[in-house]
Structure formats: structure tokens, C-alpha cells
């Protein structure tokens, strides 16, 4: 009896999904990925790092404000380095701008460790900007640990979006 019901539910899901795909075909591809969280997860997270553009804001035209990290990691991916290069270039062109880099962690870690991890992430970004010629006097860092998620969900995509460092103008 139970298995029959499960089978029925499974069919129903498949039918609904087929209908959903059919509906998606008529809309442009980009919005299709952003409306379906299940199918976009595979695309938007690579090696545990968020590679999508939801939640990303711009410091200036073509200068994204944030980079993303893998779980319990503070290594900078190639994409993160490219973003930081853009930030460095923009900071050089705007010599009076000062910034704070906020380091954040996802909710799957203890509070105190995550404060330290957020500090590591913010400093990893700061160090990279310094290698690009930005003076440390223009950059402050702050760790928020897991206290300020950008996505309040408890799923892989939310966690990937929350593992980030964000560059914020302070003047």
C-alpha cells in the first residue's frame, strides 16, 4: 500500500517536472536557471564554490563586490582572483576610495571557529589586493562569521552564497 502510494507520488513528480520543463522552454535560458533552484545547483556551484551571479552586487561597472569560497576554505579560486584584480584596478583608478572587506561563513560550523574563518577569508582577499598594489592602509577587514548570511536558506546553494568575502566602500 505504501509502495503504491510512493510510486504514485513519484509519477506525479515526474509529470509535474515534465510540465515545468515544457513551460520553461518558452522563456529565455537565463531566467529558467534562476527560477529552478534544483537544476541550477549543479550549474552554480563548482567544486563547492558558488559561481553564479545571484546576490553579487557591483562596486562599479564590471567590478563585482564579492568572491566565494569552498567549505572551510579560504583559498582564492581563479574566478575570485579575477574579481579581485578588477577591484584592484578600480581602486587604483579611484585612489581616494577606502574599503572594508567583510569575511563570512556558512551556518554549518561552530560560531567561534566561523569568526576565525571569516577573518581568514577577509584577509585572503586583502592580501591579494595588496599583491595587486593596493596599500593596506586603504583596506580594513571585519569578520562576521556566520552572523550575516545573504541567503537565509539551509541548502547547498545558500551555504555556497554565504561563504564569501564582500568588499564594501567606507567613504
Amino acid at each position: 500500500m505504501v509502495s503504491t502510494l510512493q510510486n504514485y507520488t513519484r509519477y506525479l513528480v515526474i509529470i509535474l517536472f515534465a510540465l515545468f520543463l515544457a513551460a520553461c522552454e518558452t522563456v529565455p535560458k537565463e531566467s529558467a536557471t534562476s527560477t529552478s533552484s534544483t537544476s541550477s545547483t549543479a550549474v552554480e556551484i563548482k567544486d563547492g564554490v558558488y559561481v553564479g551571479s545571484d546576490t553579487v552586487e557591483m562596486l562599479a561597472i564590471d567590478v563585482p563586490d564579492r568572491i566565494f569560497f569552498a567549505y572551510d576554505s579560504y583559498s582564492l579560486t581563479i574566478a575570485a582572483q579575477n574579481t579581485l584584480k578588477k577591484q584592484a584596478k578600480w581602486l587604483k583608478a579611484n585612489g581616494s576610495v577606502t574599503i572594508t572587506i567583510e569575511g563570512h561563513a556558512d551556518e554549518r560550523g561552530t560560531r567561534e571557529y566561523n569568526l576565525a574563518l571569516g577573518d581568514r577569508r577577509a584577509n585572503a582577499a586583502k592580501d591579494y589586493l595588496m599583491t595587486q598594489g593596493i596599500s593596506s592602509s586603504r583596506v580594513t577587514t571585519i569578520s562576521f562569521g556566520k552572523e550575516r548570511p545573504v541567503n537565509s536558506g539551509s541548502n547547498k546553494k545558500a551555504w555556497a552564497q554565504n561563504r564569501r568575502s564582500v568588499t564594501v566602500r567606507t567613504n
Partner: peptide, 11 residues
């Protein structure tokens, strides 16, 4: 803590 749903509710 309880798990939030995808909309961020239920936490």
C-alpha cells in the same frame, strides 16, 4: 537550530 526551508523560513 532548526533547518530553514529554501525561502529561509522555519529557522
Amino acid at each position: 537550530e532548526t533547518k530553514a526551508n529554501d525561502a529561509g523560513d522555519g529557522h
